[in-house]
């Protein structure tokens, strides 16, 4: 089966929702009455009604920011994301805030996978609880999605992440993307919690990853709470574009990226 010309895959995404279950309060200085999970759920439903091929993804920092998190320890966030049929998420630094055991307890309420390619949990209680990547089949195409997290040391107290091993993000992302490419993925998405960009250009960021990878098509970012006016395209090492998008924080926006087929006739990896 081939994706016919003109057909499209709609990728919906959030980042840094930070336990913002209700809309921001009416007296909020910047975002009065904006956001809210019940409204996001309706918007997602409406889009799914219209679009055949939808992926719903989150780039981490689901936890922390409102008393809902302090009282229910992430359970509600996971239940709601499951009810909205999220397809996958990655972990942000705040998702370690109640420790690995706290995350594990909350994750029991999630019906979608957490994708973490550069956190090695093999010596922790999260062993086998997350996956580096997942391949989705949409419209007969293989969409490879993997997660890349930020360095925890100095950002998260060490007793919260325990024996988690941190793998260098850029090289891990490249290896994972290459592997997904070799597995025949037609489109490769990185869920990143590295942050959009930094004044210290050496620090791993989405912009750095975009220019230093070979086959990532789309980076859905987080961490820096960047409200991008529009997705940005960056020339990667493979001479193609890697597109970055991030939608601020608190669920004020739902990101929507559309992917369409162009040169279907001469594609490299035919799918039976």
């Amino acid at each position: 089966m081939k994706l016919l010309k003109g057909k499209k895959i709609v990728i919906l995404h959030t980042n840094d929702t930070h336990s913002q279950i209700e809309p921001f309060p009416a007296n909020h200085s910047k975002y009065p009455n904006l956001g809210g999970v019940a409204k996001r759920a309706k918007l997602i439903d409406d889009i799914r009604q219209k679009e055949e091929h939808v992926l719903l993804l989150d780039s981490g920092d689901i936890f922390q920011g409102t008393p809902y998190f302090n009282l229910f320890h992430g359970e509600l966030e996971m239940k709601l994301m499951s009810a909205m049929n999220y397809d996958a998420a990655t972990m942000g630094n705040h998702d370690f805030d109640i420790g690995l055991d706290g995350f594990l307890n909350a994750q029991k309420h999630a019906n979608f996978p957490f994708l973490c390619a550069n956190y090695d949990f093999s010596d922790t209680i999260l062993k086998d609880q997350t996956k580096p990547y997942h391949i989705f089949r949409k419209a007969g195409l293989k969409i490879g999605v993997f997660g890349i997290g930020i360095k925890l040391e100095g950002l998260v107290p060490s007793d919260k992440f325990g024996q988690t091993k941190y793998l260098e993000p850029i090289s891990t992302a490249n290896q994972t993307a290459k592997m997904l490419h070799e597995k025949g993925c037609d489109f490769i998405i990185c869920l990143s919690h590295l942050g959009y960009s930094y004044t210290n250009s050496e620090k791993p960021s989405d912009v750095k990853l975009a220019s230093e990878n070979e086959c990532i098509d789309l980076i859905l970012g987080g961490h820096t709470h960047t409200f991008m006016d529009a997705p940005s395209a960056h020339k990667n090492k493979g001479g193609k574009n890697t597109v970055i998008h991030q939608v601020g924080y608190g669920g004020i926006y739902l990101g929507q990226i559309e992917v369409s087929a162009t040169h279907v006739s001469c594609r490299k990896h035919p799918i039976e």
Binding site: L3, K8, L43, L141, D186, F187, D217, L218, M228, D229, A230, P231, A233, N241, V243, H245, V247, Y253, L254, G255, Q256, I257, E258, V259, S260, A261, T262, H263, V264, C266, R267, K268
Partner: peptide
């Protein structure tokens, strides 16, 4: 053969 349609805004 698959490309992101770069919209003027990617968010709702």
């Amino acid at each position: 053969h698959l490309e992101v349609i770069l919209p003027s805004s990617g968010k709702i």
